[in-house]
Design a protein around this nucleic acid. Sequence first.
DNA 1: AATTTGCATATTGTATACAATATGCACACT
DNA 2: AGTGTGCATATTGTATACAATATGCAAATT
Lengths: 214, 214
Amino acid sequence: MHTLKRTRTRDQVRALIRQTIIGGELAAGTRLDEIGLAAKLGSSRTPVREALIALEEEGLVRSRPNHGFLVAPLDEQLVRELYPILAALEAAAVELGGEALRAQVPTLKDINARLASETGRAKRYQLDRGFHRALTAPCANAQLLRLLEQHWNHARRVDGGQARGMANHEGSCAEHAQIIAVIEGGDLTRAAELLRKHWRDGQKVVLRWMETGK
Amino acid sequence: MHTLKRTRTRDQVRALIRQTIIGGELAAGTRLDEIGLAAKLGSSRTPVREALIALEEEGLVRSRPNHGFLVAPLDEQLVRELYPILAALEAAAVELGGEALRAQVPTLKDINARLASETGRAKRYQLDRGFHRALTAPCANAQLLRLLEQHWNHARRVDGGQARGMANHEGSCAEHAQIIAVIEGGDLTRAAELLRKHWRDGQKVVLRWMETGK
DNA sequence: AATTTGCATATTGTATACAATATGCACACT
DNA sequence: AGTGTGCATATTGTATACAATATGCAAATT
């Protein structure tokens, strides 16, 4: 019996490119040259191409026939479309959380406390994502959680760890605290409502930042 | 200037396999042999393989390293996970529809009337899908609509045009009518709520059908 | 000078070749 | 007979080859 699962280079390449795009090292619109990537990664074109096809479905990459791949653009339309989706999915996850979500309250409080006192950009982002993971994990809907991870990635690209984490830090933490309190009280419907508002606020911050630069 | 966009065989292969799976011609769990498919479709393995990779992201196909692809299984867990996602996404689309959704009321009434008097299985399915398309199109969120199309496809696989279309036809149409009335009245929040219930009911019908066979 | 045309180059799309792994059956063994 | 082993075959994973298309620059034309 082999518990050691073999790993496809296509999957490794995919994870690598994904992280590079999400991390912002590859700017939106950058051309993704198969030959160049293959050379840089020490593989042939095939796994690179396959990874790019998967990443396109994930929304991080786009392609035009005979023109190849490029990093998916980040424009206002994406922001307008993305946040309502996140709001809907995460609100649903919270409502499905049930009693298991109430059990998360201590964890949520802990994460939010650390987030409130954190000043580093990257750390804040990690804690914020941890908060939302803790909020949604109890729903036990693997498909939903997968969609959420994907869309959190898009959100991360959009605000680059800047807007939500820095521009409205206290406000965001306050909203988190409010959500926690409502969950503790057992009103998941209300918690979902507040969460939708949380994402609407996040969208506002990002849009303002995109338009005015601050 | 060329308005004629070239078509990749990978995209054609993908669309073909997708339809075959959704239509139920390829049963869940069926092995998808690259060489066999390529031969049947008159291409080489490469476009087939690329199509399968994309379809895996779409959720219609699964793969295990060194074991190849198979049609994604249909089990109770999928049903339990899928319907809440559909409910959340579609409810969000309705709430985002705004005034444009009210303008759809005549169309919705027309579709629902035809659906109510239709007896054919396939026709019913098409009309039902048209109803939900008309309900969500006004939201003008391309990403959201894309997700909805994908998940409607999964739902189609799950009930095979059987459960929702046949087992609870009058009930379903009545719920549609109720939703239309509430939209006409302008209360989109309530409409979204009813729609979530509509999908919960749909889930119940499918689960009962899966367990008891009727 | 600006624009267009044509060619050389580069890149994508598909097919095939090769390597690594899995599958299945025949045979040996208990 | 049942179980396990080993080899032949088949299939996946990756690399490369070839064909079709796009790109970019230089020269010619207005």
